Amino acid sequence: APRKVEMRRDPVLGFGFVAGSEKPVVVRSVTPGGPSEGKLIPGDQIVMINDEPVSAAPRERVIDLVRSCKESILLTVIQP
Results as ranks from 00 to 15, higher is better:
residue 21 S to F: 13
residue 37 E to T: 07
residue 21 S to A: 14
residue 25 V to W: 09
residue 25 V to S: 14
residue 50 N to L: 04
residue 65 L to Y: 09
residue 63 I to E: 12
residue 23 K to M: 13
residue 12 V to T: 15
residue 70 K to G: 08
residue 63 I to L: 15
residue 43 G to F: 05
residue 41 I to S: 15
residue 72 S to H: 13
residue 34 G to E: 00
residue 28 R to T: 14
residue 34 G to Y: 01
residue 70 K to E: 10
residue 48 M to Y: 09
residue 32 P to S: 12
residue 29 S to L: 07
residue 23 K to Y: 15
residue 24 P to S: 03
residue 6 E to F: 15
residue 51 D to L: 06
residue 45 Q to K: 10
residue 53 P to Q: 12
residue 79 Q to M: 07
residue 2 P to Q: 15
residue 52 E to Q: 13
residue 68 S to P: 03
residue 68 S to T: 11
residue 18 V to W: 04
residue 58 P to I: 04
residue 28 R to W: 08
residue 53 P to T: 11
residue 47 V to K: 08
residue 44 D to M: 06
residue 32 P to M: 11
residue 36 S to G: 11
residue 58 P to Q: 09
residue 38 G to Q: 08
residue 7 M to P: 02
residue 43 G to N: 07
residue 39 K to D: 03
residue 40 L to Y: 00
residue 66 V to T: 06
residue 11 P to Y: 04
residue 33 G to W: 05
residue 22 E to Q: 12
residue 12 V to K: 14
residue 63 I to G: 11
residue 2 P to E: 15
residue 29 S to C: 07
residue 46 I to S: 15
residue 76 T to N: 14
residue 64 D to S: 13
residue 64 D to R: 11
residue 48 M to G: 13
residue 25 V to I: 08
residue 50 N to D: 12
residue 15 F to R: 01
residue 31 T to N: 10
residue 75 L to R: 02
residue 7 M to H: 00
residue 44 D to I: 00
residue 50 N to M: 06
residue 72 S to C: 08
residue 43 G to I: 00
residue 12 V to D: 14
residue 9 R to L: 07
residue 57 A to Y: 15
residue 52 E to P: 01
residue 54 V to Y: 01
residue 61 R to M: 10
residue 60 E to A: 13
residue 41 I to W: 14
residue 71 E to N: 08
residue 65 L to G: 04
residue 25 V to N: 05
residue 57 A to M: 15
residue 21 S to L: 11
residue 77 V to C: 10
residue 63 I to V: 14
residue 80 P to N: 10
residue 15 F to I: 02
residue 76 T to W: 06
residue 80 P to G: 09
residue 29 S to K: 10
residue 63 I to K: 12
residue 52 E to S: 08
residue 17 F to Y: 04
residue 9 R to A: 10
residue 34 G to D: 01
residue 46 I to G: 03
residue 2 P to K: 11
residue 78 I to W: 10
residue 29 S to A: 09
residue 12 V to W: 07
residue 8 R to W: 11
residue 49 I to E: 01
residue 67 R to Y: 10
residue 70 K to D: 10
residue 28 R to E: 15
residue 33 G to D: 13
residue 71 E to W: 05
residue 1 A to K: 06
residue 47 V to R: 06
residue 16 G to T: 00
residue 36 S to A: 15
residue 14 G to C: 03
residue 61 R to V: 11
residue 15 F to G: 01
residue 55 S to C: 06
residue 8 R to M: 13
residue 47 V to A: 08
residue 54 V to L: 05
residue 25 V to C: 14
residue 31 T to A: 11
residue 20 G to S: 14
residue 29 S to Y: 06
residue 27 V to P: 02
residue 21 S to W: 09
residue 31 T to I: 06
residue 19 A to H: 12
residue 2 P to V: 11
residue 15 F to C: 02
residue 39 K to A: 09
residue 59 R to W: 13
residue 45 Q to P: 00
residue 64 D to C: 04
residue 26 V to K: 11
residue 69 C to A: 14
residue 66 V to W: 03
residue 9 R to Q: 04
residue 7 M to C: 05
residue 37 E to M: 07
residue 10 D to P: 00
residue 7 M to T: 04
residue 66 V to K: 02
residue 58 P to G: 13
residue 8 R to I: 14
residue 72 S to W: 05
residue 22 E to L: 04
residue 24 P to A: 03
residue 77 V to R: 02
residue 74 L to P: 04
residue 75 L to W: 02
residue 72 S to F: 06
residue 79 Q to P: 13
residue 14 G to K: 05
residue 5 V to Y: 08
residue 21 S to D: 14
residue 41 I to P: 00
residue 20 G to I: 11
residue 35 P to Q: 04
residue 58 P to L: 05
residue 33 G to S: 09
residue 76 T to Y: 14
residue 76 T to F: 06
residue 19 A to W: 11
residue 59 R to N: 13
residue 53 P to W: 08
residue 34 G to N: 00
residue 26 V to D: 07
residue 57 A to G: 05
residue 79 Q to A: 15
residue 65 L to M: 14
residue 48 M to A: 15
residue 33 G to E: 08
residue 42 P to M: 07
residue 53 P to S: 14
residue 69 C to D: 04
residue 24 P to W: 00
residue 58 P to C: 11
residue 34 G to P: 00
residue 29 S to N: 12
residue 68 S to R: 11
residue 70 K to R: 09
residue 35 P to T: 03
residue 68 S to F: 08
residue 74 L to V: 15
residue 3 R to W: 02
residue 16 G to C: 00
residue 77 V to P: 03
residue 53 P to K: 14
residue 78 I to L: 13
residue 70 K to M: 06
residue 8 R to V: 12
residue 66 V to D: 02
residue 25 V to L: 14
residue 22 E to A: 09
residue 10 D to W: 03
residue 61 R to F: 11
residue 17 F to T: 01
residue 7 M to E: 00
residue 6 E to W: 11
residue 4 K to G: 02
residue 20 G to V: 11
residue 38 G to C: 06
residue 78 I to A: 15
residue 2 P to N: 14
residue 5 V to R: 02
residue 10 D to F: 03
residue 57 A to S: 13
residue 65 L to T: 08
residue 37 E to L: 05
residue 60 E to S: 14
residue 72 S to N: 12
residue 30 V to I: 09
residue 77 V to L: 08
residue 26 V to P: 02
residue 45 Q to S: 08
residue 5 V to F: 09
residue 36 S to N: 02
residue 66 V to I: 13
residue 73 I to D: 03
residue 68 S to E: 14
residue 14 G to E: 09
residue 48 M to E: 12
residue 40 L to H: 00
residue 3 R to A: 03
residue 71 E to K: 14
residue 61 R to D: 13
residue 5 V to M: 06
residue 37 E to F: 08
residue 71 E to Y: 05
residue 68 S to N: 13
residue 78 I to H: 13
residue 6 E to K: 14
residue 40 L to I: 07
residue 63 I to N: 15
residue 22 E to H: 06
residue 51 D to V: 04
residue 44 D to W: 01
residue 67 R to S: 13
residue 15 F to W: 10
residue 22 E to F: 11
residue 80 P to Q: 14
residue 5 V to N: 02
residue 29 S to E: 14
residue 27 V to M: 01
residue 57 A to I: 10
residue 60 E to R: 11
residue 53 P to Y: 09
residue 59 R to C: 12
residue 54 V to Q: 02
residue 58 P to F: 04
residue 69 C to E: 10
residue 76 T to Q: 08
residue 27 V to Q: 01
residue 42 P to C: 11
residue 8 R to E: 15
residue 3 R to N: 04
residue 37 E to A: 12
residue 80 P to K: 07
residue 28 R to N: 14
residue 44 D to H: 04
residue 57 A to C: 14
residue 74 L to M: 15
residue 60 E to W: 08
residue 36 S to Y: 00
residue 35 P to Y: 02
residue 75 L to F: 08
residue 70 K to T: 08
residue 17 F to W: 05
residue 63 I to Q: 14
residue 71 E to Q: 12
residue 41 I to C: 13
residue 39 K to T: 06
residue 26 V to L: 11
residue 62 V to T: 05
residue 47 V to L: 15
residue 10 D to M: 05
residue 73 I to P: 03
residue 8 R to Q: 15
residue 11 P to M: 07
residue 8 R to G: 11
residue 52 E to F: 09
residue 53 P to A: 12
residue 19 A to D: 06
residue 26 V to M: 13
residue 71 E to C: 07
residue 67 R to L: 08
residue 40 L to K: 01
residue 53 P to H: 12
residue 48 M to V: 07
residue 71 E to I: 05
residue 52 E to W: 10
